[in-house]
Write a protein that binds this DNA or RNA. Structure first.
Lengths: 109, 109
DNA sequence: AATCTTTATCGTAATATTGCAATATTAAAT
DNA sequence: ATTTAATATTGCAATATTACGATAAAGATT
């Protein structure tokens, strides 16, 4: 095997897992944190910011985009990437909901 | 290559990425959601709950445990797994912080 | 039009992940 | 002491991910 059995899980489970998975890599965390840090939208300098080759970063950006975490607008010959706030909100709410539910319980461990 | 270049990122970036990565799989999301759903701590029925073989589930539990998301207590010949609230709190705060920072910005995309 | 800049894609090697059958381990029950 | 039940580990095949050099594509600049 080696392939995830997505058909055995609910659509919601798969979709949240996909979003989360896209963030499960330090380079992609670094990209998101950089996008949060800079006040204007980022255009081309992620390559200078990260210790990875340009094709690698392009690939990571693609994954973040596929997962809906960032958006990219063509701006001349460069591209303006920024965070999709809705995606972050979804993740924030997901964990807030879990945290709230946990508070009402008496964990045994 | 194929291995993540962890040495090029900060400890914080690597540690949050590790936690998030552990959740980036529908089976592990399903496990967490099941642990949230059941009111008592789970012991052995995750295997009956999920459409995966026992060794596969054991492996997923191990990953969640390694990432600090769940704890496991031996309880007779079975094991009582439960969510580590601190880990969920960390994730919740991480995304809340990002969401708050984003609100103060005017996204261009 | 030729060149430069920026980003994407292709191809490929190295490594990691997913899943499970078979087997081991550990403790309870008989 | 054997058997049963629950969980973990091992070994392995299938697939996915990570990384990057080489190259392509597309708009800007000269």
């Amino acid at each position: 095997m080696g392939a995830t059995k997505t058909e055995n899980f609910t659509g919601k489970q798969n979709s949240i897992a996909t979003m989360i998975k896209a963030l499960g890599h330090p380079a992609r965390i670094a990209i998101i944190e950089y996008l949060v840090k800079v006040d204007t939208c980022i255009c081309g300098d992620i390559v200078n910011e990260l210790p990875l080759a340009q094709p690698t970063i392009s690939q990571h950006l693609k994954e973040l985009k596929n997962a809906g975490l960032i958006k990219g607008n063509v701006e001349g010959n460069s591209i303006c990437y920024c965070i999709d706030e809705k995606a972050i909100d979804k993740l924030q709410k997901y964990f807030s909901t879990i945290a709230a539910k946990l508070e009402k319980k008496n964990n045994c461990c």
